[in-house]
Design a protein around this nucleic acid. Structure first.
Lengths: 233, 233
DNA sequence: CTCCATCCAAGTGTCAGACGATTGGCGTCG
DNA sequence: CGACGCCAATCGTCTGACACTTGGATGGAG
């Protein structure tokens, strides 16, 4: 019950949401009512609402049918928050490239096996569309496709949390080492690895996919750490 | 550049932070100056700042030496955000108990091996302190100690991201299945598993720790899913 | 009866101005 | 030299007002 009033109010509403007292989709009282209910001014109420909104706990719309509605954070929301957090921690050198890649190993290697087992034909198509030819595609296209490939593979495991957690990791790595500084043949090597992974997933060869993903991530780890040393001088 | 002014302003400052133009520790212009610089009212500025603050991108203090300072989100911050997000997704049944436990397997099983290899004597002490005796300790004490044990083990790996990601998972599970509905002998079984893990980590037996952790999490998975069925039944 | 334009009500979005509260430095007085 | 108190800077909060957005209600034209 300490601290600025907007924080107290935000915490109070937040607790109501977390406890299930306020159900997703439910509409909060309007700003005047909240202001009266808690005995604070409307500006204070609004600051509390902005706080909650930026945590994706509520969504606010305007108009006669508008207001603040309790919402459930989506996988994309969590992923985005995690990405900015990890990016800043990496920039502040609180986590190393090696630690990021180590986590990718832990998650993506078994994920490749799961994907090989559970993939649908549709997901296999998605995987195919996410391949690229570095001798043909533009830098931006390979860059985006590279990310998509890993994303699709994670999604094919059927566990949404895998994507939530892993996507931020390689997005951070990619924005850091993305378009330039890649040694000659790097993208070609990546494309080869992806093609191999695609074939193994197509054949539902889980063990093979696991091994291939491990090797692929080893390649990436080496390349990233080399780029990291270079960019750091 | 669309949307409410507070969102535009928040996005603008946020971009400056992400790009490194604003360095951690740096002080933003005060609210009046921001208000003048962007041509908006002070309330709008404040709503933008609340938005950034609740994402841990800035910290605001009062007084003559006060102001808003760029900050780097800590591991604890990220972990807390992830926890509320995962908790809500679980409550909304967008993720299942099985998926949560599956992620714990992926992360904690190899983590046990790493911890066995790299642990310091100090961390071993921490691990010992986090053990408990369900026949002696209170329900709350076992509950807290159970979490601590896994936390300490993750911390001993040396990779802070492991803790950031895994801690929310078992905190969500624990708050859901924590104090009650546990079948007879559950906590005793957990305590046994922990004691065994402690001994293996003490002996630097990485393979043994991995196996023990796998079995421990299998126990937990079974118990949790049973509780889940009951509470839903 | 249908369709379209208009008006209206309920909300949020934004601004201006004022005052309170907190903090840390500075100067005065014992 | 130290303690106390004043003061300036800054955020925190309130009030009141008005603009903007949205969706429904209203009412007239065809």
């Amino acid at each position: 019950m300490t601290g600025p009033a907007y924080a107290v109010l935000a915490g109070s509403i937040r607790a109501r949401i977390l406890s299930g007292e306020l159900v997703p989709g439910e509409r909060l009282p309007n700003e005047q009512e909240l202001s009266a209910e808690f005995g604070v001014g409307r500006s204070t109420v609004r600051e509390a609402l902005r706080s909650l909104a930026s945590q994706d706990l509520i969504q606010t719309t305007r108009g006669v049918s508008g207001g603040s509605f309790v919402s459930v954070p989506t996988a994309a929301h969590l992923s985005a928050h995690l990405e900015t957090g990890v990016a800043l921690m990496a920039a502040a050198e609180r986590v190393t490239v090696g630690q990021l890649m180590s986590l990718r190993h832990l998650l993506e290697v078994p994920a490749a096996g799961e994907a090989a087992k559970h993939r649908t034909d549709e997901q296999l198509d998605d995987l195919r569309r996410a391949e690229f030819d570095p001798s043909v595609d533009s830098g931006d296209a390979t860059y985006a496709a590279n990310q998509d490939f890993h994303l699709v593979l994670l999604r094919a495991t059927g566990n949404p949390l895998l994507e939530v957690i892993t996507a931020p990791l390689f997005r951070v790595l990619a924005t850091r080492f993305g378009r330039d500084h890649a040694p000659d043949g790097f993208w070609a090597c990546v494309a080869d690895d992806h093609a191999e992974l695609h074939d193994l997933v197509a054949a539902r060869d889980a063990d093979g996919a696991v091994t291939a993903m491990r090797r692929h991530l080893d390649h990436l780890t080496g390349a990233y750490q080399q780029m990291d040393r270079l960019s750091r001088g």
